[in-house]
Write a protein that binds this DNA or RNA. Structure first.
Lengths: 211, 211, 211, 211
DNA sequence: CATGAATGAGGATTCATTCAT
DNA sequence: TATGAATGAATCCTCATTCAT
C-alpha cells in the first residue's frame, strides 16, 4: 500500500548525481546539502539511502570497481599469450580509468580528506592484486621466452601500476582531458619494443605478432 | 636585517614541523593547533609567520619546487645528447619525488581539500613545462636519429609525466616505501630498449651507452 | 461501534509495546520508528492511533492512573479506622508503584524530556490530592485519639508522598528490583510504633492491631 | 604574555550559569547556545571548558557530591551513638538535597535524557554506599540495644534512601519549595518514637536523650 | 486503513582566525 | 614579539511528522 520505491535504483541515481557534484566542487567543499540538491531530493532523504558522505563514495567506488574487475577478467581471457594479455590489461585499465575519471577523481579526493583506513586498505589490496597479476604474467612471458628475462617482474609491475595511477592523477590535477587512445598506443609501443625479447630483425622474420 | 633572516629561518623550522604533522594525519584532519604544537609554538605565533593554512603548504612547496627546478636544470646540463638528458631527467625526478615524498603527499592532500585554483594553475604550469621540456628533448633525439622517430613526442612526454605522478600517488596511498633505484633502473631499461633507435646488435657492439 | 472497540484495543496493544520500548531505551533515545517496530506496525500507522509521542505516554499514564485511583478507593473503603486506612493506602500505593514500575519510569522520563506543563500540572494535582487525602486521614486519627497528636498532618503526609516517589525513583535509577513486601512491612512497623498513640504495654496486651 | 585565565574558576562560573539555565528549561530543552548565552560567553568558548553537555552536568555533580560527602562525614562524626548519628545523617541529607535542589533536579533530568551508564553506575554506587552506611549504623544501634532489634537494617536503610530520593523528586515535579526543617522534624519524630527500643515510660525514667 | 518514503527544522560540534595582554 | 582565550560561521546528522499510494 505504501509508496513502493526501488531503493537500489534510487541509490544509484543519487550516487550518480553525487559524483557529479563531488567532482565539480571537490569532496571537502561539497556539502551533504549540495549533494541532496544535485540529486533533487531533500537533505533528510539522502540519509535514507546513505549513512554519510563516505558511504556515498563507497557506493560509487563499488560500481566503479565492479566494471573494473569484470573488464580485467575479460582482458585476461581475451589473449592466449602473456604479452598480449599484458597489452590487453594495460589498455583496458587505462581506458577504464579515463572513462570513469569522475569516480577516480572523487575517490582520490575522499582518500585525502577522510583518513578512512578501511578504504585505504581495500584500495591497497586492489593495487597489490594488480601488481601480483601483472608480475605473474610477466614471469610467464619470461619463462616461455616471449619477454626479456632481464628485468624484475615485480618492479616492472609496480612501474605499470604507478603509470596507471599517474594517468588518473594527471587527469585530476588538470582540467583538460587526456588522450586515452594516444597514451595507450604510446605505452604499447614502449612495451613492444622494450620488453619483448624478440627484436626488430626477429620480428621482421616472424611477422611481429607475439602469439 | 638579522631579524629578517631569523624570521625566514623560523618560518622554515615551523614549516618543517608542519609538514611532519600534515603528512602524519592528513591536511584536513590536522588543525592549526596541531601544527603549532608540533612546531613548539603558540597558535597565535603561527599567524605571525603564515597567513593561513594554505600558506604553510605553499611555503613548503616553494622549497620543494626550488630543489626540483635546480635538479632538473643540473640534469639537463649533465648530458650532451638528448637520450642521456632524458635518462638524467627522469631519474632525478623519480628520486626527487621519493626523497620529498612528505612534501608531495601534503601538496596533493591540500589540492584535494582546498580548491585553490591558483595553486592548481601553478602546478599545471609546472607539469606543462615538464611535458614541453621532455617533448622537446624527445624531438631533438628523433631529429638527430638517436631516438625512434615513430612516436609522438608530446604523448610520450605525457606518459612520462604521468608515470612520475603515479609513483607519488602510489607512495601516498600505500604505507610501504617504494624502491626508487629499482623503479629507476626498470624505467631505464624500458626506455633504452624501447625508444632508442639503436637495436640489439648495435648495443652488443657499443656497450649500451648512447653517447 | 465494533470498529471503535477495535481501535481502542489496538491503541492499548500499541501502547503496551511502546511502554516496553520506552522503558528499555529511555524516552529521549526511543524514536517513533522504534515504537512502531516494537508494536509491529508501520511508522505512519502509529499516527492513526496517537497524535504524537507525548500522547502515547499520556495514554499509558491514563491506564496507570485509573488502576491507581481505583485501588486507592478500594483501600479507603477497606478499613473503618483512620490508622488502618492509612496502612492500606500506603501499602497499596507502594505495591502499585512497583507493579507498574515501567509506566512510572516512562512517565518520569517523559517529564524530564518534554516540558509539558499540562502533564506536570495534572501530576501535581494528583500528588496534592494524595497529600490532602492522607493529611485528612491523619487528622481524623489524631481527633479520635488513635494517632499521636504531636505531628503536623500536612507535613507527615508530604513525607509519605515523598517516600512513595522515592521508591519509584530508586527503582528507576537502579536496575535491580526493590522488595515491595519488605519495604511495605518496614514502613508499617515504622508507622505502627511511631505515629500511633498506643504504646508498648497496650500492644503487648491487645496484640498490635489498632482497631 | 597571553591573557591569563583561571580555567578552573571560569569553568565553575560557567557551570553555575549552566545549572540555572538547565534547571529553568530542562536538560533536553536547553541548547548549548542557551547555556553559553546564560554564561555570557560565545558558543565556542563553552567547548573550551566542557567537552559536551553531559560534561557540564558532571562538573556540577562533582561539586554537589563533594559537599554532600563532606557533610555526611561531619554528620557521622558529630554524634557518638548510632541513633544520633542516624538523625544527623538524615537531617543533613534532607537539608543538603533541598539546598542543592537545582543540582539534584538537573542531574535527574540528565539521567532521563542521556542514557549514560557510567553516570548511572556512579550514582548507584553512591546510593549503595549510603544504604550500607545507614544499615551499618542501624545494626550497631540494634546491637547496643538503643534501636529496636525487630527490623531488617538493610530494608529500613533502603526506606530512608528512598525517602531522600522522593524528597528530591517531589521538589523537581512541583514548583513550590518543600519545608526542609518541617520534613526533617517530622522524620525525626517518626524515627524517635518508632525505631527506638526504649519507650515512653523508659524515656521518662532515663530522661529521653538516647545517648 | 496502513504504510514507509520524503522532508527540513533544529541542535551539537569543530576549528580557522582574531586580538587583548 | 608571543601567546592562547574567545569566537561564530559552517556543516553534519537526527528524527518527528506528513502524505501520496
Amino acid at each position: 500500500m505504501p509508496k513502493i520505491v526501488d531503493k537500489k535504483a534510487k541509490a544509484d541515481r543519487i550516487a550518480e548525481a553525487a559524483i557529479r557534484a563531488l567532482r565539480k566542487n571537490g569532496y571537502a567543499k561539497t556539502r551533504m546539502a549540495d549533494i541532496a540538491e544535485a540529486a533533487g531530493i531533500g537533505k533528510g532523504t539522502l540519509y535514507e539511502y546513505f549513512a554519510d558522505k563516505p558511504a556515498i563514495v563507497r557506493h560509487c567506488f563499488t560500481a566503479y570497481f565492479e566494471t573494473f574487475a569484470r573488464g580485467m577478467n575479460d582482458a585476461m581471457e581475451s589473449a592466449p599469450c602473456p604479452a598480449d594479455k599484458l597489452f590487453a590489461l594495460l589498455s583496458f585499465a587505462l581506458a577504464h580509468a579515463l572513462e570513469w575519471e569522475d569516480h577516480c577523481a572523487v575517490v582520490i579526493d575522499q582518500m585525502s580528506c577522510e583518513r578512512a583506513e578501511e578504504e585505504r586498505a581495500f584500495l591497497t589490496g586492489v593495487y597489490d592484486g594488480m601488481k601480483a597479476l601483472i608480475a605473474d604474467i610477466l614471469s610467464q612471458g619470461q619463462e616461455d621466452g616471449s619477454l626479456d628475462p632481464g628485468f624484475s617482474p615485480e618492479t616492472m609491475a609496480a612501474l605499470f601500476v604507478s603509470l596507471y595511477d599517474g594517468v588518473i592523477l594527471q587527469r585530476l590535477l588538470q582540467e583538460k582531458p587526456l588522450d586515452a587512445a594516444g597514451l595507450s598506443s604510446a605505452l604499447s609501443r614502449l612495451l613492444r619494443q622494450g620488453i619483448l625479447a624478440e627484436k626488430q630483425d626477429a620480428k621482421q622474420k616472424k611477422g611481429g605478432a607475439p602469439c
